[in-house]
Simulated scan of single mutants.
Amino acid sequence: MIFPELVTERLYLVEVNKEHAQGIFNNFSNPAVLQYYGMDPMTELKQAEKLVEHFRNSFLSSHSIRWAILRKEDNRFTGTIGLNNLSKGMKRAEIGFEIHPDYWRTGMTSEALKAVLDYSFTELGLHRMGAVTFLDNVASIGLLEKHGFVQEGILRSYLFQNGQSHDARVFSVLKNESTNLEDAL
C-alpha cells in the first residue's frame, strides 16, 4: 500500500515515520498543543514512537491516514494532520490536526487542511468530512468554518482529558459544499 504524499506551496505532507518521533513528542508533550486535543501530555519519547507505529498500522488497515507536516524551506516538522475513522465504504472520515505553537497563525494548518480536503473529496471519493472540537477551541473552530465546515451540534461528555469529561462541538463539510478556497489561504 503506497502512502499518498501531498505537496502545497509551502509544505510537504508525508507519512509519519520514526524520524518524526521527536517532533511528535515535542508536540504531544506540550500542554499548549494538547489543551484542546483530548489526551494527556506524553512524558517519554517511547510514547511518541508507539504513536508513530499506531499511525502506520491504522493506515495499513485503512482506518486512517496521518501526514507529517513539513516545511519545504527546511524540511522542519511542524505537526500532523490526518483522517480518523476513515470509512471509504460510507464515504466519510473525520479530520484531526495539531501543530507546534511556533507555527500557529502562519496559515500552515489552513494550507495542509485544504490539501487534505481536496485529496479526500477527489482522490478518495469521500462525501463527508467531520471534525470534533472542544467547545472553546476558538482557533480550530475558526479554521474549520473558514474551510466550509458547519456546526451540527454538541456531543455531551464526548472527550475525556485531565481526569474529566468535556462536551464537544461536531462539525462537517460535504463534498458538494466544499468551495475553492484559494482566496481563504
Rank of each mutant, 00 (worst) to 15 (best):
F3G: 08
P4F: 02
V7L: 14
E9S: 11
E9P: 02
V14L: 13
V14S: 11
E15A: 14
E15D: 10
V16Y: 00
G23D: 05
I24P: 05
F25H: 07
S29Y: 01
N30L: 02
P31C: 08
V33W: 00
Q35D: 13
P41Y: 06
M42N: 12
L45Y: 07
K46L: 12
Q47V: 04
E53C: 11
S58I: 09
S58A: 14
S58P: 02
S62D: 14
H63W: 09
H63M: 13
W67I: 03
W67V: 06
I69F: 00
I69K: 09
R71C: 03
N75S: 13
T80Q: 12
I81H: 06
L83W: 00
N84E: 11
N85E: 14
L86N: 03
L86Q: 04
K88R: 14
G89L: 06
A93G: 06
E94W: 00
P101E: 08
D102F: 06
W104V: 00
R105D: 08
M108Q: 11
S110Y: 02
A115T: 00
A115F: 02
L117A: 10
Y119Q: 07
T122L: 15
E123K: 15
L124S: 09
L126T: 03
L126M: 04
H127N: 15
G130L: 11
G130K: 09
A131V: 00
V132R: 14
D136Y: 10
E145L: 09
E145H: 02
E145I: 03
K146I: 05
K146N: 07
F149M: 05
V150C: 13
G153E: 12
S157C: 14
S157P: 05
Y158Q: 15
Y158P: 08
L159C: 10
F160K: 15
Q161Y: 00
Q161V: 04
N162V: 06
N162E: 11
G163T: 02
Q164I: 12
Q164G: 12
S165L: 13
H166M: 06
H166N: 08
A168G: 05
R169D: 05
F171Q: 08
S172K: 09
L174H: 09
E177N: 13
T179V: 14
N180E: 10
D183S: 15
L185S: 05
